[in-house]
Design a binder for these strands. Structure first.
Lengths: 150, 150
DNA sequence: TATTGTTATACTCTATAACTATA
DNA sequence: TATAGTTATAGAGTATAACAATA
């Protein structure tokens, strides 16, 4: 039986794969969090921008995607809009709905953020050689694969 | 060149290992977040409890470990204390310092949370067979290994 | 009636700055 | 003087409840 799951539960235990996964998640999120902070963005704002990178969803779809309430999205998007990163426009199809999308400025920022994330995480993945990276990617993808669960 | 890093950047791209890592991190954090919410705990509170599982740090050490300000810790611990999960006691060695530790109730909760996390993530890791899980664990550990970076 | 989005309200998380007490 | 912790304050993120407009 492993003794640790929460990331800081100390060091020399017989961790299982779940412990390693949780630890990797915390390390990764810490990096994303730092990059966000350096750009005055919360993790949630980072995610919003990531979604909008290649989509133009409605408020409700955004909230759904993030697992947040509609009312939370209103504030989130309002703040991003005030900063000129995103914009809102009434939907053409549904008079009640509002589309959200990146501004030019927002799109440029997203590309910069993407490179920053790559650069910040590369030192970690580079501890593995090319073949190992490939194996890791394959395993993670299979683990995250949607649909059938066996 | 991969087109996605931020987790919701859509589906069928030629993701590299960093993309897979980030996606895995978001999925894992979503699970932790949900379990926290089901127990009325934020991710940060979850981390605090995890640290205290086998430690009795001072406020400053806790803040350091979490990458937060001392003043943030004060509120965090005060709220956990009001709920009876942790307690504070003046340090024996340093008249300025305050030790933090789990109460009996807090310790029981941590064990329950640990099992919940295991149960919630098992469906993901179980998509891999035993040998693959072992390989994944090894790769993640090597990637996260502290110290020498090659 | 049901859905989309916003507003009002309240609480947690977070940082900065100023403070107290001890070292 | 420097360090440990708290308090005061302010802003972001979050949810719930009530609401307006549209479907």
């Amino acid at each position: 039986m492993p003794k640790t799951t929460l990331p800081e539960s100390s060091g020399a235990h017989d961790e299982d794969v779940i412990d390693a996964l949780v630890q990797a998640a915390f390390v990764t999120m810490a990096v994303l969090n730092r990059i966000g902070a350096e750009n005055d963005l919360s993790l949630t704002q980072l995610r919003v921008l990531g979604i909008l990178r290649d989509r133009r969803p409605r408020m409700a779809a955004l909230a759904d995607h993030l697992g947040l309430e509609k009312s939370t999205m209103t504030g989130l998007i309002a703040r991003a809009e005030q900063r000129g990163l995103v914009a809102r426009a009434p939907s053409a199809e549904d008079g009640r709905a509002v589309d959200v999308f990146l501004t030019r400025t927002g799109a440029r920022l997203v590309e910069r953020l993407y490179r920053q994330v790559q650069d910040a995480l590369a030192p970690l993945t580079d501890r593995l050689n090319a073949a190992e990276q490939q194996r890791l990617r394959t395993l993670l993808r299979r683990m995250l694969a949607p649909g059938d669960e066996h």
